[in-house]
Simulated scan of single mutants.
Amino acid sequence: MEHELKTLTARLLAQRWLPRGDKLVRRALVDETFRLELDRRLADVGLRLLDNPYAAHVGVALQPELAEPVFGAGREYAASNLGLTRDEVALLVILWALIVLPKRQRQVTRRELVDDGQTDLFGGDKPVAHGDAVSGTLTEASLIADFGPRLGGRTKVRNFMLGKLARLGFIERRNGLVTEGPLLDLALDYRVMADRIIHGTLGEILEAAGHAPPESNAFELAEVLPDEAEALDEED
């Protein structure tokens, strides 16, 4: 077990995130002894494992109490410890709302992108799906047309902002399409953001642009997370 723990810890530190289906990651999710030792080793250097059962990846982050000592000296920390500007943070939140919120609703109801919910009588018994089966795509053209003027212009959004978010791992860009990256669902806290977006000002902006987030009951989706995490561990 020692070699596996060293290997997984080193890979998490070097690569920042790993797919949930990775052999050692799966062991950390189902082997309590292995997970406790992994958590201890990460905690020794001020880190914690990011494990969202609805996300397709796991990653590492600073323990909350160390965020200020580590990042507080930089002026940009007030907005982001990744050096994101206010406009870039705004675009990131918009992308999260347009990709993750609809995806989460499909995951909770066990529906896939091609499923209208009428053909599978036992859909609720299926394991939570990840990846392309539930995660939708956006076209860069429509995204820029709807939100570019609010975020500094088309050129800025296309050539700089989307590229930066892709390099950081929040999104992936391919043939004019924007899809979910490893960190989009993992690094942003669903419990904090969902209800604020659905019932807040951003929800009104998205609706005006024709991209209204689903009228899902955000409280109910948030409440299901702990139970789902336990169920997923048992399934794995």
Score class of each variant (00 low, 15 high):
residue 155 T to Y: 06
residue 25 V to N: 05
residue 79 A to K: 12
residue 25 V to Q: 06
residue 89 V to I: 14
residue 83 G to C: 10
residue 41 R to G: 09
residue 60 V to A: 01
residue 108 V to Y: 11
residue 130 H to M: 02
residue 149 P to R: 00
residue 86 R to P: 01
residue 134 V to G: 00
residue 72 G to F: 08
residue 91 L to Y: 10
residue 92 L to G: 07
residue 110 R to S: 04
residue 109 T to L: 12
residue 52 N to V: 05
residue 133 A to S: 10
residue 66 L to G: 11
residue 57 H to K: 00
residue 24 L to Y: 11
residue 130 H to T: 08
residue 103 K to R: 15
residue 40 R to P: 01
residue 106 R to H: 02
residue 139 T to M: 01
residue 30 V to G: 00
residue 46 G to A: 14
residue 98 L to T: 12
residue 53 P to M: 03
residue 147 F to Q: 05
residue 101 L to Y: 14
residue 33 T to D: 05
residue 135 S to H: 10
residue 70 V to W: 09
residue 113 L to V: 14
residue 28 A to V: 11
residue 93 V to M: 09
residue 92 L to M: 08
residue 154 R to Q: 10
residue 72 G to Y: 04
residue 109 T to K: 06
residue 35 R to Q: 15
residue 126 K to M: 06
residue 76 E to F: 06
residue 100 V to I: 14
residue 134 V to Y: 09
residue 63 Q to G: 03
residue 108 V to R: 13
residue 138 L to M: 13
residue 53 P to N: 02
residue 140 E to S: 06
residue 103 K to Q: 15
residue 70 V to E: 09
residue 160 F to G: 00
residue 57 H to T: 04
residue 159 N to R: 15
residue 105 Q to P: 01
residue 149 P to M: 02
residue 122 F to I: 12
residue 50 L to H: 06
residue 83 G to L: 05
residue 124 G to Q: 07
residue 151 L to S: 09
residue 65 E to R: 14
residue 36 L to N: 15
residue 80 S to N: 03
residue 54 Y to A: 02
residue 117 G to L: 07
residue 62 L to P: 03
residue 48 R to S: 07
residue 44 D to Y: 08
residue 83 G to S: 13
residue 105 Q to Y: 09
residue 122 F to N: 11
residue 129 A to K: 12
residue 121 L to Y: 10
residue 155 T to G: 06
residue 36 L to V: 09
residue 161 M to E: 13
residue 48 R to A: 07
residue 32 E to D: 12
residue 84 L to R: 07
residue 43 A to M: 04
residue 73 A to H: 13
residue 139 T to V: 05
residue 85 T to Q: 10
residue 86 R to C: 02
residue 72 G to S: 09
residue 126 K to N: 04
residue 101 L to T: 01
residue 24 L to R: 09
residue 80 S to L: 02
residue 138 L to N: 11
residue 41 R to S: 07
residue 101 L to D: 02
residue 42 L to M: 02
residue 30 V to N: 08
residue 112 E to F: 12
residue 39 D to F: 06
residue 34 F to M: 13
residue 36 L to D: 12
residue 118 Q to W: 02
residue 120 D to F: 06
residue 80 S to H: 10
residue 98 L to A: 14
residue 100 V to Q: 11
residue 26 R to G: 15
residue 121 L to W: 13
residue 49 L to S: 09
residue 160 F to R: 07
residue 43 A to G: 15
residue 112 E to K: 11
residue 97 A to F: 09
residue 113 L to D: 11
residue 153 G to K: 11
residue 132 D to T: 14
residue 122 F to R: 13
residue 74 G to E: 06
residue 147 F to L: 06
residue 81 N to G: 02
residue 134 V to P: 14
residue 163 G to P: 10
residue 120 D to R: 15
residue 75 R to H: 03
residue 131 G to C: 10
residue 56 A to N: 03
residue 36 L to Y: 04
residue 69 P to S: 03
residue 53 P to R: 09
residue 36 L to K: 15
residue 30 V to I: 13
residue 94 I to T: 14
residue 106 R to G: 03
residue 64 P to N: 04
residue 94 I to F: 05
residue 27 R to K: 15
residue 161 M to F: 13
residue 66 L to P: 08
residue 149 P to N: 00
residue 60 V to Q: 01
residue 80 S to F: 01
residue 62 L to T: 08
residue 131 G to D: 09
residue 90 A to I: 01
residue 157 V to K: 03
